[in-house]
Amino acid sequence: MNSAVVYPPPTAPPADMFGTVPGYEGTVAGGGGYLPPPVPLEPVAPPQPGPAPADWSIPSLSEDDAQKAFKEFASANCCWSKKPAEDGVITNMQPFNTYRYRLETFTESRSTEWAQKPHEGEPADFYTQPAPRPWEVQATPPTMFTNHTQEIRVPYTSSIKDCNTCHASGVQPCGACHGGHKECWQCRGSGTTGIETQCGHCRGSGQERCDKCDGRGTMACDTCKGKRQLLAYIQLKVEWVNNVEDHVVEQNSGLNVADLHSVTGKELFKNSQYLLYPLVGFPNPVIAEASERLIRDHQSKYAQTSRILQQRQTVELIPITKVNYKWKGDTHVYYVYGNEHQVSGDYPATCCCVVM
């Protein structure tokens, strides 16, 4: 869960030096885990009614639109023959509209770890003032329901120390050579090419100057980047995550429900607030039950390790059309679904490539 760089053990801050920062007692090098948020508020809004009765029908898909969608489906696959889409004859079309309930819970979580970076003149403010607690540090949230991560150096936790990787020298041996020289690539260290012919590239020495370190034999230290000192501090990682969960009402079309994740439908209802109540009185009881179950689960699951900032629930009616068609005397089936007219089905001529 923690993607921060783990530095070599010698460079980690001493535990006895930083173990008494109020609010950060459990923070360690490599990550201290997610921090419980402040006590959440209780919902204050009344239960949400379902959408008012309305004309929820979706216009039936025309044969022309079904044929067009099928042709685009075939054209998107370069090795498929276009004949089934072009010559197939539609024999039957059957609509299967289905409800999808979607719950989004937008959360903010915070975790801390001891981190370090090359010292570039930053002041050492450790203990000059009390450090703000993890949930007191100001962070700029993104647009609501958008995933984002921000890393913040916690004020008044920074100290300066010598780099133990290079012993404060700022340099380390070059890994590509030995003392600034390496084996000549042309004669492979022999000093000759052919039969007793001196290598013209290294002039018979068998070695050449290392181009990685420019012949110095050393390079800037990977840990301190040549600065000789490190700034050690508590790093706060703030993550905003939009946790999305769907429930699709069972439908008998035969289309795999997983196919519906990538499409949209006709929006029947949407509302958002800090903490949602389940829908009440929705015409389809399965949607009302899904709303109650998912809201309860989300509020229980995410409130333990994160702060719920907003919830949003949506009900859509997704169009699905089952299309039967004939090609070369055989009957085949494909589905056209969603506002985007996506297509799913077993294509009867999936390879027209010619192997030379």
Rank of each mutant, 00 (worst) to 15 (best):
T314Y: 00
H332I: 03
T105G: 05
S159A: 13
Y127N: 14
S111C: 04
H181G: 02
H119E: 12
F106Y: 09
F145G: 00
N284E: 15
Y99K: 02
C199L: 03
Q116A: 08
Q229H: 11
H201R: 05
G23E: 10
V248G: 01
F282I: 04
Y7Q: 09
K82L: 14
P142R: 09
T112I: 04
T128H: 05
Q207K: 07
P173S: 05
G345T: 10
S190V: 04
C166E: 01
A4K: 04
T197C: 08
P59R: 11
G215V: 04
C163W: 00
K270E: 12
G31Y: 09
G217V: 13
G32D: 10
P348E: 07
R203I: 08
C187Y: 07
G31S: 07
F145N: 01
S158Y: 02
S159G: 06
Y337K: 09
C187L: 05
S81P: 06
G30L: 08
W185C: 08
L279F: 06
L35P: 00
V355M: 14
T11M: 07
K227F: 03
L309K: 06
P46A: 13
K237C: 05
P8N: 09
G226V: 08
W327V: 01
P173Q: 04
V286H: 01
Q251C: 09
S253A: 12
T218R: 05
G206T: 00
S291H: 03
T128R: 07
S300C: 12
T192M: 10
V257A: 06
G217S: 10
C78W: 13
C166H: 01
N324M: 14
H261F: 11
W56V: 12
P14Q: 15
Q198W: 03
A15T: 15
Y277K: 13
I287W: 02
P53K: 09
K266V: 10
C224Y: 00
C352I: 15
C177T: 00
K322H: 11
I318A: 01
V263N: 05
L309E: 08
C352P: 05
D330F: 12
R216T: 14
S62G: 11
Y99H: 06
G226K: 02
D55W: 03
E122S: 09
Q138N: 10
G204M: 02
T223G: 03
A54K: 13
Q310E: 09
E340H: 05
G189C: 10
G254V: 10
R216Q: 09
T98R: 04
G32I: 09
P95T: 10
S60C: 06
S158A: 14
K212Q: 11
Y156N: 11
P37H: 01
Y302N: 02
A4N: 08
P10C: 08
C174P: 01
Y127M: 14
M144V: 11
F282K: 02
P285F: 15
C221W: 05
